[in-house]
Design a protein around this nucleic acid. Structure first.
Lengths: 343, 343
DNA sequence: CAAATTTATTGAAACGCTTCAATAGCGAAG
DNA sequence: CTTCGCTATTGAAGCGTTTCAATAAATTTG
């Protein structure tokens, strides 16, 4: 419906340059050898017309768009945003464009996003899957489009995976807290169903059992009812032998938890230690600054790209799973403070 | 290069259903009236083949992609992210897809982004322009694609603009601070060249002159050299008659400023009041919480959409500039605290 | 019942590009 | 001087749709 003034096509360029349309294409793509004369004429014509190629037609014909699609649950989460940035950067560096679509964590919407990208002929797909991604994965497999699953391990053997080693990360977290003297932990997750959380729980459990660690832990879900959440955190922290440190699963949970602590009149690390997965920009301006687990996004993006690239080059899918260990950033919030002195 | 297994085309559907390819298209787009019989046959065929339309071909033929492009400097800034979310939401609601590309605030990259979107046949363009957007604007105008410039007023009469009323917002800010007893302000901007900042300065100036306000103010740029920044903030705050409140231009400047205050051992609002443009998620978990100016992104997105839609419908460009007033969110950081009691 | 009108379906052109087999040009070799 | 490669250039087909004039079928009307 848009009333566009017609943009010049390659035909116009060819006509103005007085050459065949095929030659114009050859010059513009520097494919076949062309004479200097022809080359300069075509280039000049393109210049004067202000020719810009129509990449829709180009994609249709070439059956390749030089676009990579990234399906992500949202863009709020600091970690996802940084990951998207890294992916965009590396895609751009390799002559690809990244388009990001939001699945909002809903399987139906995810399938829609995937199909939309596939029908746009993306050359590669990066999927951060929802809880039941089977339909989406099937669609991708059916299309045969190169793809990488990130951040969440699916059981699907058809795909390459790049994931965070959340089990080890959690073990490091527990260890670090234990070394600071914390013996009772509360782990607050956003969603207990998600595989990421399950891996972290595995790590927590393993570490807790070790004889030289011996910490107790409790687990809760954040939920969306904030008053109820505050109430529940309060109940746990005021019970007998309360946790001395809280580990939160991501920055949103961290924010809710911090609000809860403030409502309850509790300070960190005085009343309770604090450490969160994700390393949001505000972690070090809180008083005192918050310890975090930081994911090396550049490394993830590299791993994703290398897998995608080899698939796009037609190499047989090297279906390996790459697991990346995040960094622990210890700040004041996780130290063992006053209570440590008392006990 | 990707080795895609061939996806079924509309031809395959037509053949399987035993109808002409045109009829298949008619069914799939429910354009012309078709008999029930034909309809069910085509639908069944599409179903069994798992047909998904190739939107590249569709776009080429229809000369319309049902995609909107959003060129934005970055995705770090909370405000931009929220705006992108709102735009995505409203686009989706109206059957469009939003694709976001990052200009990184560089004119050359901006032009590249714009051209890339145009060559992808986007039906509409939303541009948050860089400091010298002329080339980009010309490209858009030449293509005749419906477009809206957001957040920054360009002098270009060819385009619709949706902007924040930063002048009035700043006047409200000054007024509010003045009512809390602040008479000397420091405004820290990210970039004095950008039109947004200039509007804010205008508001600051106007308000400062008013007889019932009479505040003094000082202005500085953040710069990228953090140690130098800290030093400079320190110098200003320790001079004679130092500012009693700081207003920062966005959340990044706010973070730098807060770090500076922490380095200098200053607390808010005890030593100096604090208020920032943008309303980042962490504003109310700082101690004490930070006052902010919050931009109503949903309203902006609405305004953008309504302009785009009317342009896409071929209505003569109603080239008006819509100006939206943000909300002031007063929290503890901007109150006049101890020093107020002393003076 | 033939003609006129309406309705459903078809076939082919077109969208703007790339690609590749075929042609034209041209100097080298026989 | 003819023939044989070469290489530079061309022309046309095809990518998967939509669209629209033309046809076929069905229905109404005089």
């Amino acid at each position: 419906m848009p009333t566009e003034t017609k943009r010049p096509t390659i035909q116009d360029v060819a006509k103005l340059a007085g050459v065949s349309i095929g030659s114009a294409s050859n010059v513009l793509n520097r494919r076949l050898p062309v004479s200097d004369q022809l080359q300069t004429r075509v280039l000049a014509a393109a210049e004067t017309l202000g020719f810009q190629i129509n990449s829709v037609a180009q994609t249709l014909r070439r059956r390749s768009s030089r676009v990579l699609g990234f399906c992500t649950p949202d863009t709020r989460t600091a970690y996802l945003r940084e990951l998207a940035d890294s992916l965009d950067e590396i895609a751009g560096r390799n002559g690809y464009e990244l388009v990001q679509v939001l699945t909002r964590q809903e399987p139906a919407r995810e399938l829609h996003c995937v199909n939309s990208l596939l029908s746009r002929q993306v050359d590669g797909l990066i999927l951060l899957p929802s809880l039941s991604p089977q339909a989406s994965l099937d669609a991708i497999a059916r299309a045969g489009t190169p793809a990488v699953v990130v951040d969440r391990l699916s059981e699907d053997k058809r795909f390459s995976h790049v994931i965070i080693d959340n089990r080890s990360a959690m073990r490091q977290v527990v260890n670090s807290l234990a070394r600071s003297g914390h013996r009772r932990l509360l782990f607050i997750a956003q969603n207990l169903g998600v595989i990421t959380t399950r891996h972290r729980l595995a790590g927590l459990e393993e570490e807790a059992r070790l004889p030289d660690v011996m910490v107790r832990y409790e687990v809760m879900e954040r939920g969306n009812d904030e008053p109820a959440f505050v109430e529940r955190v309060g109940r746990i922290l005021k019970a007998q032998d309360p946790p001395t440190a809280i580990v939160t699963g991501n920055s949103r949970v961290a924010i809710s938890t911090i609000r809860a602590l403030q409502t309850l009149g509790l300070a960190w690390p005085r009343d309770v230690g604090l450490l969160t997965f994700e390393d949001p920009e505000w972690a070090d301006i809180l008083t005192p600054p918050i310890s975090t687990v930081r994911t090396p996004n550049a490394a993830i993006a590299e791993a994703v790209w290398s897998s995608l690239e080899s698939q796009m080059l037609g190499h047989p899918i090297s279906r390996k799973t790459i697991s990346i260990l995040p960094d622990l950033i210890i700040r004041e919030s996780s130290s063992r403070f006053s209570k440590g002195l008392l006990e």
